[in-house]
Design a binder for these strands. Structure first.
Lengths: 139, 139
DNA sequence: CCGCCAGACGTTATCTTATTACGTTATAGG
DNA sequence: CCTATAACGTAATAAGATAACGTCTGGCGG
């Protein structure tokens, strides 16, 4: 993970970040580009460069299984712990959560195996509660 | 996951599967295509169609973070449980393992949240024991 | 003040990955 | 035999990502 300190965002970085925050789901790089043509964006690289920095700052996550990006849902701060995502295949909503116990189990495997872990990707596919019509949990 | 029953493999499926088995690491679809030009493959779709079936049969896994594919390392059979992968960023080797406890934790989250889970992607990045020069585990 | 360096930026071209569209072939069941 | 279905072949194109340039700006040592 190794987060980088976060200086002021540049103009392009701010634009990309706010596009992701406006969206109610993940956006692909090209979707972001289209969003920002009005602001003067012309080429994919402008988006990819901004995304690269935003990811390094921990403000944005990449969804590998979608080739798309979301703003981190943790309020403001960059969180150290790895994130996990539940992707609804019906409505496209993505829920981010902190997979504490799962991460612990994976870390344990890594330690045991001698694998030097730097980054963990966890993505769940399925249907969210609303789309599957399941009752609310009693918790 | 929902595995499909596995009938005889077709010629193309067999060729793709054996290319993946020959390889000592993950292959991209286009790398497979190049491998198989000698056998008459001409177009990406021949590879993608075969991969789709092989994945459905549980014989092949897709590595989302690499856009690449590996043969399942479980001896013969299609295993029901989800698989996890540890990808060495130095040597490119991929280790497949069964993340039992991690999966349990994720299932528990899903149950609690009302998320109807169909598929789980777990991919670890880092350096394998050999590349990081770590000592062998004492286990 | 000047010159230089590093970081962000802009632009074009290109590469890689994946899919759409459409027609053909092989085959099992009625 | 006839037809439905699954696999296949081919071409074209969409979608995602990067390489290789050059420019501009702001900070800093001389």
């Amino acid at each position: 993970m190794t987060l980088q300190a976060q200086p002021e965002l540049t103009k392009n970085q701010s634009l990309v970040f706010s596009a992701l925050n406006r969206a109610d789901g993940p956006l692909t790089a090209y979707a972001i580009l289209d969003e920002l043509r009005a602001e003067g964006f012309r080429a994919p690289l402008q988006v990819y460069r901004a995304l690269e920095r935003l990811q390094a700052y921990g403000l944005v996550h990449r969804l590998e299984s979608l080739n798309a990006f979301v703003a981190c849902s943790h309020p403001q701060c960059a969180h150290q712990e790895s994130a996990a995502f539940a992707i609804c295949e019906k409505c496209g909503q993505v829920a981010e959560f902190s997979p504490g116990r799962a991460t612990d189990a994976l870390k344990a495997w890594a330690t045991q195996t001698g694998f030097a872990l730097t980054n963990t990707t966890i993505e769940l596919r399925g249907m969210c509660r609303l789309c599957s019509g399941a009752p609310a949990p009693c918790a």
